[in-house]
Design a protein around this nucleic acid. Structure first.
Length: 582
RNA sequence: GGGCCAUUAGCUCAGUAGGUAGAGCACCGGACUUUUAAUCCGGGUGUCCGGGGUUCGAAUCCCCGAUGGCUCACCA
């Protein structure tokens, strides 16, 4: 291009030049150019200049000798070697020019390091190219490590290579990207400029890996069942519907994994698990994303007590291997502030006094907070607000097993003084619950009432890990009934931080009983409950062939990650949360 | 879906008796060879979320809409 040859490399960047360069080189239309702001125009101009001088702004593979973290860790030995040159690559995230020398910071997956370029080392041309780099550019650097006067480990640049030109300015270096909307929509920016975010997602991966290690070591077989179901079963939720053209049938995205894993137990796999995405067509909140990750596992010849032990051991294993401790700060989790993670103020687990020792008595467990939570205005005021320390106070959750176990009836009685064992019929149960200000349907049964009361008034106050056992059959259509009380099932949920973390039961393997439960659910469906279970004849057929007595456990992986990373929103632990398109 | 709040430069944010938009960072030009939120000098780069309305005049007041946050409902 003639015009570029007329340009003195040192001359100012002329806007009209940029326009020409863009139309000629990038194929952009004039309309596109109007969209570009000054900052982007400048970068496009630099891009054109680079191309003109024979430099590929979007380069090729690059051989590194070290990750940045390796350089930092091995500084002593690298510095002492006469020819201890390192080659690193990464994104330029800061530049501090000093005339004939320039400091810059480079970020790779492992960390961040300072580099130092001097004109008398690089030569004039090369140094000018270096000075023309922009924050956001991706470069490779070769040089010797040293320490500056201020003691910062630095690479003295001997050679560098532009690997990718960045055409847009990054968010501000000090405040980072705070706009939560942009953080989720442009997660890549969030990851570049908010260092705590990357840590959370690395932690998430470690947590899931630890779960796999734990289960694999115990002989569980990881399987993958289908995610498109002809019948959406295994949970009470509205499904997403999709359509298969060739078969001309509607299919549901799965709302649970349960019924297919149980089919596998029928088929003779005795220990199976799946970690996978499930989909529920429901609202979005700090605790809910339409697609989320479930762990479900099933073990033949076991029951819910085995699941309790397994659950305890697994979460203990996960916390110790990923956090190195069983004491997790309870600050954001449960406090809905939605603020981005502040990496400069890491959760100071060490600084937090363990207010409550683990394994407290039932009385103590329920003693805290339940009182204030009872006021008609208090429910839903936020979990933190239920605590004696008040909203936002730092607390510690201790995951050291064993964890207290309490029946739901006891829990409600202990917290509210209402003894459901004394309540004999559904109408009385409805009256009692309504008397406490909780709405229940006109046909709500004893178990629905017990559950509603528990969920509304008791569960939010269960901060330390607690197994709540013996769920009512009315809300547990897939769990085995208790022999000594058919109104209840062999089911528990694990509550931590006022939230359900796990749900488990002795699986119902009586096909006749299961059919009854489905029919009961169908009746609720008829009555307008869109979330009631559907009849699954094929599943019943499987049960009729015989499923061994089985214990099953489900864990909401995202919520477990929230707990272990002290995250206040599920969107902070899901890389690309569901958003309305712009 | 309901309620409350927010939306101003690339980013983080100021901006009321309604008078034609501002700071820091980033960016551009200049100085500067161990700085580190580098510093110093000069430069404001904008669809004030969108659309109506009131007004001589709207970022500001009113209405409608969009998106997001929190919250309620539902769930895990």
């Amino acid at each position: 291009m003639r015009w570029i040859s007329q340009v003195d490399v040192k001359s100012d960047l002329q806007e009209d030049l940029v326009r020409e360069g863009l139309t000629a080189r990038e194929g952009s239309t004039a309309e596109d150019l109007e969209q570009l702001n000054e900052l982007m125009r400048v970068r496009r101009a630099k891009l054109a200049k680079l191309r003109e001088s024979g430099i590929d702004p979007f380069g090729e593979r690059f051989e590194r000798t070290h990750l940045i973290a390796d350089v930092l860790e091995n500084f002593e030995s690298l510095e002492s070697q006469e020819d201890g040159k390192v080659v690193i690559a990464g994104r330029l995230v800061a530049m501090r020019g000093h005339g004939k020398a320039t400091f810059a910071d480079v970020l790779d997956v492992s960390g961040r390091i300072q580099i130092y370029a001097k004109i008398d080392v690089l030569g004039e041309d090369s140094y000018r190219l270096f000075s023309d780099l922009d924050i956001g550019d991706i470069i490779g650097v070769r040089g010797k490590v040293f320490k500056t006067r201020r003691g910062e480990i630095t690479i003295a640049v001997e050679e560098f290579k532009l690997l990718t030109k960045s055409l847009r300015p990054l968010p501000e270096k000090w405040h980072g990207l705070k706009d939560v909307d942009l953080r989720y929509r442009q997660r890549y920016l969030d990851l570049i400029v908010n260092p705590g975010v990357r840590k959370v997602f690395i932690q998430r991966t470690k947590i899931i890996r630890a779960i796999r290690e734990f289960l694999d070591a115990r002989g569980f077989l990881e399987v993958e069942t289908s995610a498109m179901h002809p019948i959406a079963g295994g949970a009470a939720a509205r499904p997403f519907i999709t359509h298969h053209n060739a078969l001309d049938i509607d299919l549901y995205l799965r709302i649970a994994i349960e019924l297919y894993l149980k089919r596998l137990i029928v088929g003779g796999f005795e220990k199976v698990y799946e970690i996978g995405r499930v989909f529920r067509n429901e609202g979005i909140s700090t605790r809910h994303n339409p697609e989320f990750t479930m762990l479900e596992l099933y073990q033949a010849y076991a029951d819910y007590t085995d699941m309790m032990k397994l659950c305890e051991d697994m979460i203990y294993h996960v916390s110790v291997t990923t956090l190195g401790t069983t004491k997790v700060p309870f600050r954001n989790f449960g406090l809905a502030d939605g603020a981005p993670r502040d990496d400069s103020a890491p959760a100071g687990a060490a600084a937090v006094a363990p207010g409550d020792a683990p394994g407290g008595t039932l009385g103590r467990t329920f003693g805290l907070g339940v009182g204030p939570a009872q006021g008609p205005g208090a429910p839903g005021a936020g979990l933190g607000g239920d605590e004696p320390g008040g909203a936002g106070s730092e607390r510690v959750i201790d995951l050291t097993p064993p964890w207290p176990r309490i029946t739901m009836v006891e829990a409600v009685k202990g917290a509210l003084g209402v003894d459901f064992n004394e309540i004999r019929d559904d109408a009385e149960a409805r009256d009692v619950v309504r008397g406490l200000g909780i709405e229940v349907a006109g046909d709500a049964r004893w178990g629905n009432c017990l559950f509603a009361l528990y969920e509304e008034r008791v569960e939010p106050a269960l901060i330390q890990p607690t197994f709540v056992v013996d769920y009512p059959v009315d809300v547990s259509p897939l769990a085995k009934k208790k022999k000594d009380d058919p109104r209840l099932t062999y089911r528990f949920e694990l509550i931590i931080g006022g939230r359900e973390i796990a749900n488990a039961f002795s699986e119902l393997n009586d096909p006749l009983d299961q059919r009854e439960r489905f029919l009961q659910q169908l009746a609720q469906r008829e009555a307008g409950d869109e979330e009631a279970h559907m009849m699954d004849e094929d599943f019943l057929t499987a049960l009729e062939y015989g499923m061994p007595p089985t214990g099953g456990l489900g864990i909401g992986v995202d919520r477990l990650v929230m707990l272990l990373t002290d995250s206040s929103s599920i969107r902070d632990v899901i890389l690309f949360p569901t958003m309305r398109p712009r």
